[in-house]
């Protein structure tokens, strides 16, 4: 087998952000379903959480290519 361990590292680093994104949007959908008028307050918070979680996944992607 050939390849770099960096790609395995990227695979591992996507697990956490994947779960985090799921949790963020699950909570967002729950909140909006219970109280549709709270959407305006919840939406920026959901985007903030999504951006913070997604940053880690993309950092993993970029580092996998840089740290060969």
């Amino acid at each position: 087998m050939t390849g770099t361990m960096a790609i395995v590292g990227f695979g591992l680093s996507t697990i956490g952000p994947g779960i985090a994104t799921g949790l963020v949007f699950a909570a967002y959908i729950n909140g909006v379903a219970r109280q549709p008028e709270a959407r305006g307050i919840l939406q920026p918070l959901a985007f903030l959480g999504f951006a913070l979680a997604e940053a880690l996944a993309l950092l993993g992607l970029v580092l996998a290519f840089v740290l060969k």
């Binding site: 985007f47 999504f50 951006a51 993309l58 950092l59």
Partner: peptide, 25 residues
């Protein structure tokens, strides 16, 4: 989740990727 939200999600990913690639580069 409306379609506008989905657009925002993809744009957020694009911004993060652009920031990392541009300034990392």
């Amino acid at each position: 989740m409306s379609s506008k939200d989905e657009g925002a999600m993809f744009t957020i990913i694009a911004y993060l990727l652009a920031g990392l690639l541009l300034w990392g580069g």
